[in-house]
Simulated assay, not measured.
Amino acid sequence: MTERVTATPAAIQLIEQLKGKHGPLMFHQSGGCCDGSSPMCYPDGEFLTGDSDKLLGEIGGSPFYIGEAQYEYWKHTQLIIDVVDGRGGMFSLEGPEGKRFLTRSRVFTEEERLELNQ
């Protein structure tokens, strides 16, 4: 089955490390503002989602949400969450680790798009 959001092995490793420190996690794909368009990692339930947030799936067993307006721009792509060295969003849990989550993407194939639209 095609997933709308996945994570690289490096991102999964960091997620597991953060879970060990902070417990269950959640992600929200930022649509800009203070932290650019980075995937933000929070303790589960700390970021309040609303009616305009869409649950895309899970990465590392953690729910991953995206704002509806942002989803409209990226709905034709699979989000691939990766991690790189550096400082990310000031409110995201990975910041003190000297790492930041990063969203990469790829366009769905025609077959994947049809599967997702069923």
Rank of each mutant, 00 (worst) to 15 (best):
T2K: 15
T2I: 15
R4C: 02
V5H: 03
V5N: 02
V5G: 01
T6W: 05
A7P: 08
A7T: 06
T8A: 04
T8I: 08
P9C: 09
P9E: 10
P9I: 07
A10F: 01
A10S: 12
A11P: 09
Q13M: 04
Q13P: 05
Q13K: 13
L14R: 02
I15C: 00
I15M: 00
E16P: 13
Q17T: 11
L18C: 09
L18M: 12
K19M: 06
G20N: 11
G20Y: 07
K21H: 12
H22T: 09
H22V: 07
G23F: 11
G23E: 12
G23A: 13
P24L: 09
L25P: 07
L25I: 09
F27L: 14
F27Y: 07
F27I: 03
F27E: 05
H28D: 15
Q29K: 11
Q29F: 11
S30H: 13
G31Q: 10
G31M: 10
G31A: 10
G31C: 12
G32C: 08
C33G: 12
C34Y: 10
D35R: 08
D35P: 05
G36N: 11
S37D: 11
S38V: 07
Y42W: 15
Y42P: 02
P43G: 01
P43R: 14
P43Q: 08
P43T: 04
D44V: 01
D44T: 01
E46S: 09
F47E: 03
F47Y: 15
F47G: 00
L48P: 02
T49D: 00
T49F: 00
G50C: 10
G50N: 06
D51F: 00
D51Q: 04
S52N: 07
S52V: 01
S52L: 03
S52R: 03
D53S: 03
L55C: 05
L55H: 04
L56V: 06
G57Y: 02
E58N: 10
G60I: 05
G60N: 04
G60K: 04
S62Y: 01
S62M: 02
P63T: 03
P63Y: 01
P63K: 01
F64S: 08
F64D: 04
F64V: 08
F64H: 06
Y65P: 06
Y65W: 15
Y65N: 08
I66G: 06
I66P: 02
G67M: 03
E68A: 11
A69Q: 13
Q70R: 15
Y71L: 15
Y71A: 13
E72D: 10
E72T: 07
E72G: 02
H76D: 15
T77I: 00
Q78L: 05
L79E: 04
L79C: 03
L79D: 06
I80W: 00
I80N: 03
I81W: 00
D82Q: 09
D82W: 05
D82S: 13
D82N: 14
V84K: 14
V84R: 14
V84N: 13
D85Q: 10
D85M: 04
G86F: 11
G86E: 10
R87I: 12
R87Y: 13
G88A: 12
G88Y: 09
G88P: 10
G89W: 08
M90L: 15
M90H: 15
M90T: 14
F91R: 14
F91C: 08
S92K: 07
L93R: 05
G95A: 09
G95T: 11
P96S: 07
P96N: 05
E97Q: 09
